[in-house]
């Protein structure tokens, strides 16, 4: 049925290989998250993946598509894992399930399934949860010193939210710094136990772990360097420009190694379906996300900004594509815009 056409030899790459490499590259980051913030992340990940896979299967059946064929590609697992590691660790199960549902149904399949969604599904889900349930979504990181066991994490997730936990750190380090810098000096703020030697305690390691995973992806050529480099560079430039005054702005080290910076740079912004396509376009796209992350973090109301920055740049991706086409062999210049005038 499938017509035979050139090239007859093809490489051994496949979508499922790409997706499962991504899953594998997420492992160090996840391990670090679990080590630092407890089993909640694992519980969330399991819930997210289970719900997402089940919903994906259901919708494929409803859409009369082959279920096995599409589940095999593993893309939904990546989406679910990205969502779960963006959520706070101590949240009720239904929040995770709703997030997965939004990602699968609204962000992915309503647009036509794999490859057709204009917005990053995990980020759509995250942003919707964030604006709908702001308290649950921003205040549920356990105190770094009091980690719930796996059993506790399960209990917390399924009903007894506050069991055995007295303390939540209400805010992530980025948030904490921004909230306090108004009345304290940089040195005073950094006295807080949530900060470590270089950046925030824990968050630094988590970001390094995601960085390692990202470098693996780069080495395996699953992603290209363009988006991570331009994204990080634009955060770096912005934070150096504005943040040289530590008493007014969050310092560079916190920007780069706290919050979701590395996760965003290597795993979320690089989602190829929703990113710009050409190398030049990717540079613009990555820089745009970095810029927006910095702007929202610094002058916006949200402690972290990945989801909104990514979604806003998802909007702009087609436009970027139109103006950043590469120069084709033999052409004197690249074709830009929507009309071919030469």
């Amino acid at each position: 049925m499938i017509s035979i056409t050139s090239p007859h030899t093809v490489g051994q790459n496949s979508v499922s290989k790409v997706m499962f490499t991504l899953v594998a590259a997420l492992v160090p980051g996840y391990a670090c998250l679990i080590y630092i913030f407890g089993w909640g992340y694992l519980v969330n990940a399991l819930i997210a993946v289970t719900v997402a896979v089940a919903l994906e299967a259901l919708i494929l059946v409803l859409r009369k598509r082959p279920v096995g064929f599409f589940l095999k590609d593993g893309s939904i697992i990546v989406t679910a894992l990205l969502l779960a590691c963006a959520l706070p660790p101590i949240v009720p199960w239904w929040l995770v399930a709703i997030g997965s549902g939004i990602a699968v149904i609204f962000a992915k399949h309503l647009f036509g399934g794999l490859g057709q969604n204009p917005f990053n599904p995990a980020m759509v889900a995250y942003a919707l949860l964030l604006v709908s349930l702001p308290v649950l979504m921003t205040s549920r990181w356990a105190n770094v010193d009091v980690l719930p066991s796996f059993a506790d994490a399960l209990t917390i997730s399924f009903g007894h939210l506050d069991k055995g936990l007295d303390a939540f750190t209400g805010a992530t380090p980025l948030d904490h710094y921004k909230l306090n810098i108004g009345r304290l000096t940089a040195d005073n703020v950094l006295q807080d136990p949530i900060y470590g030697a270089f950046a925030a305690k824990g968050w630094m390691q988590i970001n390094l772990a995601f960085l390692v995973g990202g470098l693996v992806l780069l080495a395996l050529r699953i992603i290209t360097w363009h988006i991570p480099v331009s994204l990080l560079a634009s955060i770096l430039v912005m934070s150096v420009l504005f943040g040289s005054d530590g008493d007014a702005f969050v310092p560079t080290s916190l920007h780069l190694f706290s919050g979701s910076t590395m996760l965003a740079a290597f795993f979320i912004a690089t989602d190829p379906v929703t990113a710009a396509t050409s190398n030049k376009g990717k540079l613009v796209y990555g820089a745009g996300i970095g810029l927006l992350i910095y702007i929202i973090r610094t002058w916006g109301n949200y402690p972290d900004a990945t989801a909104f920055a990514v979604l806003l740049m998802n909007f702009s991706a087609p436009l970027i594509d139109h103006y950043t086409r590469p120069r084709v062999y033999g052409h004197s210049k690249a074709v830009k815009g929507f009309k071919n005038d030469g």
Binding site: M1, I2, S3, T5, R65, P66, F69
Partner: peptide
């Protein structure tokens, strides 16, 4: 010239 390749739903339909 080559015809358009069949996409998945069409291949399933075969």
């Amino acid at each position: 010239h080559k015809s358009k390749p069949l996409t998945l739903p069409e291949i399933i339909a075969t």
